[in-house]
Design a protein around this nucleic acid. Structure first.
Lengths: 336, 336
DNA sequence: CTGAAAGCGCTTACAG
DNA sequence: CTGAAAGCGCTTACAG
């Protein structure tokens, strides 16, 4: 920078202002200085910039410490939306995993205190993650991505799970199903509770049997979905439809059903939730609820950047979902 | 830091040395200063640290600009290994996408020049990505993850594709298959060429028909795998086994085969490559080659950190692979 | 419209 | 074993 200033016969302050498009600089010196910058191939040191300006222009993404979190298309789509938008807004994205040690050592706070980042996204958090309150308390910008806490004043962007669940129930009931089971994800997630509530309300409305044995926890994994299917089939061998809280559990359910000699959708219809890309290519292709995960991530990024820039009102948004009808659902079979 | 120094009645230089475990500091002052640090909850500003020390302790991961790169389990596993190891080695990980604009504006170089990062991982690069040479030329630490360039002096860590392909050919030939087709990924990737070469050599050895029509490019995607399957079936309706260069193409192939009324593995056996987690849960579960992607990522991270710390020899490693036999392969059927 | 100077919060020779 | 001082490379009031 000193060299640029020297060659352009201006001060370093002027070079800095040119770099930051400060309107106080005249057109002429703008051009003169820029020419020297290009000639010398000068690149401002962003450590020095951040140290002076108090902005790092870096955002952290906190992922849950699951074995396959990084290779989970669900998180991947959210991440993809976040990264694309961050790039467009001139921000970098840093990855963090919320391991027990990480939280115990308060590293999520250190990220701010030590000036690694300006803001943070929390993915896959739920009621058990008490650390989310720390951000609000310390006043650090944070937005929850695709989950929310009705009782806390936190920024969030979510897909509309309730409406998605309504659509699933609509189609299953229209297809004539009366023996419907729910494989739900972790009940500590508000969105999972939303799905459960809609399911229960609609079953009650329709005068159908529900309660014990008609719901099983699938822990959001393929293995969990398979195990939950075992439970359900044991309690209710006459089940004709299974509604899974995410696509991975739906995949596990379909796999187990076939192993148990039941055809999908011939004997049992299966519906998922998320619409991760591969589900169009499994056999049979999966009927599911499309969540605009990429958009949720992108929107969350916009809100976080606003927060970082000083916006103070609480921000929250709920994005629309829609059903994708494929081959894993059909009209209820004769024996159903 | 000044306040810590004041309260501990030492200089800021001493506080700095305590923080960096400088052996020149006596045990007594170590303890005294640490106590004050804890008491005040002091956290060093890492921007200032990096500005002075010339180390950012940040590594960048460059992903290919594919629509679903972030939600692709293949990249996810690599990323997972990288992040876990980076964390253990005290480094942060930053995400970048190699979009055309990104490269045109030489942002991959800017990341170093502007001191965003100390080193970089390149994932999903191939012969068409001429930018990889820039790192070597500029002397910036970079390691290629799970691909390599025999003609360039670049650091890399890869899975052993040749050995994996050998194992696939062994099992298919042992099962009696004689009409075997290959759906290969992009031929601009050296690893894809490795697979192709092993396939061709083994077919030749076995005196089996190969060449035109027995190989199709599946572009590493589900859609590509489905399209390649169409081509193959059209040219060779009597095919009894399809070897796909990755699991996504294998999934696309299985899906299309079923649509075409062929049973897997009854009529056609299918083998994948990668062993991404979901493939154990599709119907039928997929026989595939397990690549130690997590370990490849982790190892690449270790090598990159060594490079950053000044190691100068060229570093490269090849990690073992093994076949995972599941339900998508069987002994050749009567008509085969 | 531009410059000189202080400051951001550290680390690192150099003295002692 | 410890301190005073220079330096890392920027930005930002403050003068003019």
């Amino acid at each position: 920078m000193r060299e640029v200033a020297q060659q352009a016969s201006v001060s370093v302050a002027t070079v800095s202002m040119v770099l930051n498009d400060n309107p106080r600089i005249s057109k002429a010196t703008q051009i003169k200085v820029r020419r020297i910058i290009d000639k010398l191939g000068y690149r401002p040191n962003r450590l020095a910039q951040s140290l002076s300006s108090q902005y790092t222009r870096v955002l952290a993404v906190l992922l849950p410490p699951l074995r396959h979190a990084f290779s989970d298309p669900y998180f991947g789509e959210l991440l993809s939306g976040i990264c694309d938008r961050a790039d467009r807004l001139g921000h970098k994205v840093m990855l963090e995993s919320a391991k027990p040690d990480f939280l115990r050592e308060r590293k999520h706070m250190e990220l701010f205190e030590r000036r690694f980042v300006d803001g943070m996204f929390c993915l896959g958090v739920n009621d058990r993650h008490h650390f989310v309150k720390d951000f609000a308390a310390a006043g650090f910008p944070m937005v929850c991505v695709n989950n929310y806490f009705p009782d806390l004043k936190l920024d969030y962007v979510v897909a509309d799970y309730r409406s998605g669940a309504e659509q699933v129930m609509n189609v299953l009931l229209q297809l004539g199903h009366k023996k419907i089971a729910l494989i739900n994800g972790a009940p500590e997630a508000q969105t999972a509770r939303d799905v459960f509530e809609v399911f229960s309300a609609r079953m009650l409305d329709a005068g159908l049997e529900t309660g014990q044995g008609w719901t099983a926890d699938g822990r959001f994994t393929e293995e969990g979905g398979a195990a939950a299917t075992d439970e359900i089939i044991q309690r209710h061998p006459d089940v004709t439809a299974i509604f899974a809280g995410n696509d991975k559990m739906a995949l596990g359910a379909m796999h187990r059903l076939v192993e148990l000699g039941r055809s999908v959708p011939g004997d049992v219809s299966v519906v998922g939730f998320d619409d991760i890309q591969q589900m169009a290519f499994v056999n049979p292709s999966l009927t599911t609820v499309h969540l605009p995960l990429y958009e949720v991530g992108a929107r969350a990024c916009e809100l976080l950047v606003q927060r970082v820039r000083g916006k103070t009102e609480k921000i929250s948004e709920r994005l629309a979902t829609h059903l994708v009808l494929r081959d894993s659902t059909s009209i209820v079979s004769g024996r159903g």
